[in-house]
């Protein structure tokens, strides 16, 4: 029975490791200026945790294979070094790992959260709502009109609650259902929730951030590759959560300018 358990443990360890090593299911190509740091951290963590996982399963497998009950009353022995060796090894191994991951891992986090958006960043407001995302550009005047929750009228495409009758700044605001941005240009996203909690997740951008009702949360990034990607919601927000998505279209500066011009007509 011990041998069988050892074999099964072996198969589990190897079977789990193969898809990871082969990257059968893995992160898509990174298209952000900060993502390489997250990817590096991910690979290092994968290596350390992977080795820990496989090693623990293999040692467990070895021990259960070796130390089954022999019925002949063998005297129990102890691991050389005893508990002291185990504790020291655990603290040394995991402690180093913890320190390494904790200290070096903070850089990627700092890049996203501690740095302010560049001063020339393009400001875009994103509103999350049951169940979609809407994006607002300031328009030619460079100003966002104020929001009036009581003016929201979705049947009339007024998702943000703008009041162009009274607010001059709102009249030229551009509302889009897709996030269209120029490539290689810093984007400053102002995140606003209309109703309940949501989240903004673009795998390729290595960006994920919750929307919190009542808070306006800033977020910034730079996309480095032209293309069309999916924005999805990762915070349970109600029955249409599965269908809450939008497209991110990264365009060249010229294409973006042209798109913007089209929108403001």
């Amino acid at each position: 029975m011990g041998k069988l358990l050892a074999v099964v443990l072996l198969v589990i360890a190897i079977g789990s490791a193969i898809p990871i090593l082969m990257h059968t299911w893995w992160m898509p190509e990174d298209i952000s200026s900060h993502g390489y740091m997250i990817d590096k951290q991910m690979s290092e963590t994968m290596a350390e945790s992977g080795i820990a996982f496989v090693a623990a399963q293999l040692v467990l497998a070895g021990f259960v294979a070796m130390f089954g009950d022999k019925k002949n009353g063998r005297k129990a022995t102890h691991l050389p070094g005893g508990a002291k060796a185990v504790v020291i090894a655990a603290i040394a191994l995991v402690g180093t790992e913890v320190l390494a991951l904790g200290v070096f891992g903070k850089d990627a986090w700092a890049e996203v959260y501690f740095k302010k958006a560049a001063t020339d960043a393009l400001p875009i407001q994103v509103q999350a709502e049951q169940f979609g995302f809407y994006f607002r550009y300031a328009g030619p005047d460079g100003k966002f009109g104020p929001l009036h929750p009581d003016k929201i009228d979705e049947g009339n495409q007024n998702f943000f609650g703008l009041d162009p009758a009274n607010d001059v700044e709102s009249r030229d605001d551009i509302i889009a259902a897709s996030l269209v941005i120029p490539v290689n240009k810093p984007i400053s996203l102002m995140m606003h929730a209309k109703d309940v909690g949501h989240s903004f997740y673009v795998r390729e951008l290595r960006i994920q951030q919750d929307f919190v009702p009542g808070l306006d949360i800033p977020m910034h990034f730079t996309a480095t590759k032209v293309g069309k990607y999916e924005i999805v919601c990762t915070q349970l927000c109600g029955l249409g959560h599965y269908n809450m998505r939008a497209y991110l279209e990264v365009k060249s500066q010229e294409d973006f300018d042209q798109w913007l011009k089209q929108q403001s007509q």
């Binding site: 997250i38 951290q41 945790s49 399963q57 891992g105 850089d107 795998r203």
Partner: peptide
């Protein structure tokens, strides 16, 4: 065995920078 398997994935989620990708 399963405690080890579930434990090592904690290393990923304990790091805010990896949570950016893996959370949710």
């Amino acid at each position: 065995s399963v405690f080890v398997a579930g434990g090592v994935s904690g290393f990923f989620l304990a790091q805010p920078s990896l949570d950016i990708y893996l959370h949710g």
